[in-house]
Nucleic acid binder design. Structure first.
Lengths: 342, 342
DNA sequence: TACTTTCGTGTAATCGATTACATGAAACAT
DNA sequence: ATGTTTCATGTAATCGATTACACGAAAGTA
């Protein structure tokens, strides 16, 4: 039987109306117990399945939420999504995935598509900053769709966010390098218009100053998050008059590239040069020369985003809460930066 | 304005009926050119957005497709999903993600939920084999929802699949180890009720036989896909009367564990012992001692699955095609198994 | 007995779009 | 002038479920 069974079919069979069937199935207290049981039994016998689309149209709620990420095939984003899915699953929400591929045009398209698809909420990591095109975001908020940023966030009224304390992450990593005896610490940063990179940078700077070390502009390299970019950046650094003796990289991939390039040049790690990364990608732990990195607890970030959404979704429009959750980063100290016994 | 604009609003403003508006917006040829233009202009001015839920209810098509994977935070599955999303995006489909966490109960729940949500198709990597509970799958097929297996597949009539040639993958890896001079090659396998593990094993066995080497039952270890499991398995192997001098592992993670354990015991790789894995996880390439592995081209697998779905979705029920796509595995030879110059 | 509640169910509108069929006007043919 | 097409639009049903309101019967009250 591939025929779809509706409440009308059940009603017809029992010689009652669809309204009664609907009420019986929805535990409406006005229904006689006998009728309810009969309806429920019949529905089961006929293999009735509620049509969610009809329900969604009537209620205006699709029970879908949208997640927008730059790309899904990175351990960090995949883990966040895992967290979101796990937290939302018991509540009956389905998770729709969109990728921006770091394109703002695509980001806007995704936002519109999700709103058009009547998702009940959107969680996203923004792809970059462009001041004027807030229109797509505003459109979301005007439609009263809860919007939550995770990790990469923007400052928009009415939008909650779940981030980690990137400043502290940068500070911890840098402080650790200093404690290991490094005195000329360089920094790989990313697009400074994104808060995450800005704050990691500021944490780095503050750690230097707090320890009485000079901050040198030339030690800061703005680089992409890739192995090759890391190699090139090390190359630049080593050409300086006073080359650094450590790098705090905002990207694990760039950190890996740096390490590969340093090895190539027979600079020994960690005795001559220390490296710390950011994100705690799986490979940092697996390397023979394991890489020190700042963990962002992506699973928890996803779970927390979902929880913030759940809080938000039931509130009436009047009580708009704007929640800013900041998770604590955790420094995983590994061989790439450990001169003392390990 | 957060008010939703419907075709009725447009109709009212223009003193025409909603039917005309609908036709104008859908390029129905029966509509006067002047009317069409007026409607389109007015719709744009009023910021009209088609209600996809209403459309979905009317048409019975949600424009969503469901993807079920054991978990999303593995590079392989994330990459497949990426491929699916990229291929389907231009066609206007949204991708809904479900995780089974290797639980059959969860798998069945997911299947039912997706069918209830009226997805237009389901792509999945099955979580395991249990002969009787085909009911969830049958339910999908009875509802005429195209179902496509990728990577881990089951034999069910009417279901298309996209897999790689696991036999060949196992054969290539094993043959390579033999060519490097290994003579006692062990194998880490997984749940043999899953075709992928069965076939990798069979490829391994065939390669041995073709090269005139003995197949030894004791060299085959059924192990989980984890670093620790790899360590333990090596431990077992080394206690054998004739310990092996190579491992072909169906899992990169187990291969990594094996390598770590071998190093611990000062067995040098690749000169004394060679290792090859499966899946080409990112870390296999990043290691200082990079790990030989069989690539499954997950991105291509995802794209191909999406294409098979697209072919299927437009066919009438009568012309049910059952397509079996088998992709070629590619052996990436790296340091962990290269005794010759590299 | 007559009047008011309460209870269980039916009626019909609604969510927003699509579409088979109906209709009236204009255009064309004879 | 009358009959026939053609064209553009309106009418109303439909997708499947929910729900405000209506209503008759049963139960309770005076």
């Amino acid at each position: 039987m591939s025929e779809k069974v509706t409440i009308y079919d059940i009603a017809e069979k029992l010689n009652i109306t669809a309204a009664t069937v609907s009420r019986a199935l929805n535990n409406n207290p006005k229904i006689k117990q006998a009728t309810r049981e009969l309806v429920i039994k019949t529905a089961a016998a006929m293999n009735y399945k509620q049509n969610k689309l009809a329900l969604a149209l009537k209620s205006g709620r699709s029970n879908n939420i949208g997640v927008i990420v730059p790309r899904i095939d990175s351990n960090f984003f995949a883990s966040v999504i895992r967290g979101i899915e796990e937290e939302l699953y018991p509540h009956g929400y389905q998770v729709i995935i969109c990728q921006t591929h770091e394109s703002i045009k695509r980001e806007n398209e995704n936002l519109h598509t999700l709103v058009d698809a009547q998702v009940d909420g959107i969680m996203m990591s923004v792809t970059g900053i462009s001041d004027e095109n807030d229109s797509a975001f505003r459109n979301v908020l005007e439609k009263n769709v809860p919007l939550i940023f995770f990790d990469r966030s923007k400052h928009i009224d009415g939008v909650s966010s779940v981030t980690i304390n990137d400043f502290k992450g940068g500070y911890l990593a840098t402080k650790h390098l200093i404690d290991e005896g490094c005195r000329n610490i360089a920094h790989f940063s990313g697009d400074q218009s994104l808060d995450i990179f800005k704050n990691r940078f500021l944490g780095y700077k503050q750690a230097l100053l707090d320890s009485g070390l000079d901050f040198k502009e030339e030690y800061v390299i703005y680089t992409k998050s890739s192995v090759d970019a890391g190699k090139e950046s090390v190359d630049k650094l080593l050409q300086l008059q006073t080359p650094p003796d450590a790098i705090f990289s905002s990207s694990d991939f760039a950190a890996l590239g740096a390490i590969q390039e340093l090895k190539e040049r027979n600079i020994s790690i960690p005795s001559e040069f220390c490296v710390a990364g950011f994100s705690n990608e799986p490979f940092t732990k697996f390397m023979e020369l394991s890489i020190t990195s700042v963990d962002q607890s992506p699973l928890e970030m996803g779970r927390m985003s979902a929880r913030v959404f759940l809080e938000q979704v039931d509130k009436t429009d009047a009580i708009k809460i704007e929640k800013k959750v900041v998770l604590a980063p955790e420094l995983h100290i590994r061989k790439s930066s450990t001169r003392t016994n390990f």
